[in-house]
């Protein structure tokens, strides 16, 4: 595997019709290495989350190329993109996005089962226990605090041992203490597993703890 985990080459993203276009990203270029922790910062509406979505293959670039571990993903179809996500990527959202009618354990197991990994309940329980949720395993998301929900969401993202973690303002809905705890979990994991972490954040203190900062302004790297 190449040391280059993510590569954006002259990537543009345009929304809307030909007469009413919004240029979200304008010729973005950057590389992120396999064990690198990068924060993406910038004002609201600058295109930070769009970069995360493009990297995850959840959005199609209007032009340019995006490579994940040297695989050009802009030419892949839906199923191939799903495979890339399953094998290489874990995503953490600001709003957690847990499945409301599944318990904490079931939400984490879902990620394993999506990868056709069965009989790994012990591993999911262990991870949740490591995240301090051993007493919350059978609770529904609505029965968990915000911090607990985000820990479940992170466990779900990490359980498959992805080589890339994409986090969209993962501490945006958390208090300072929970934010700190969350970041420790993510940083520990990435360092231990030599994983890339790309994190969108508004928190400059958090951003400065990363190896590198990419600043986006008006759809361009500032």
């Amino acid at each position: 595997m190449s040391n280059e985990a993510i590569k954006f080459n002259d990537v543009s993203l345009i929304y809307g019709t030909s007469t009413n276009q919004t240029k979200v990203l304008k010729g973005i270029d950057f590389n992120i290495n396999s064990d690198e922790i990068v924060s993406i910062v910038g004002p609201s509406g600058s295109g930070k989350t769009s970069i995360i979505m493009l990297a995850a293959g959840l959005e199609k670039a209007s032009s340019g190329s995006i490579c994940i571990h040297s695989n050009e993903i802009t030419v892949l179809n839906e199923n191939e993109l799903s495979l890339i996500r399953r094998q290489h990527i874990g995503i953490v959202f600001q709003s957690f996005y847990l499945i409301p009618n599944l318990s904490a354990l079931e939400n984490v197991m879902l990620s394993l089962e999506a990868n056709q990994k069965y009989n790994m309940e012990d591993q999911a329980v262990e991870l949740l226990t490591n995240f301090g949720l051993s007493h919350r395993i059978d609770h529904l998301p609505s029965e968990l605090s915000g911090g607990e929900q985000q820990r479940v969401a992170i466990a779900r993202a990490l359980i498959n041992k992805p080589s890339i973690i994409l986090a969209d303002e993962p501490t945006g809905n958390l208090d300072e203490e929970n934010s700190q705890h969350m970041m420790e979990l993510l940083f520990d994991y990435t360092k231990k597993n030599k994983t890339s972490l790309v994190m969108v954040t508004h928190d400059s203190e958090m951003a400065h703890k990363c190896d590198r900062i990419i600043e986006i302004k008006d759809g361009k790297i500032a």
Partner: peptide
């Protein structure tokens, strides 16, 4: 509604359309 939401989560987790 629940199914729409769940399907989007599955997609984000890398579950493909056929699954």
């Amino acid at each position: 509604n629940l199914r729409k939401y769940n399907n989007l989560i599955y997609k984000i987790l890398g579950v493909d359309f056929s699954t």
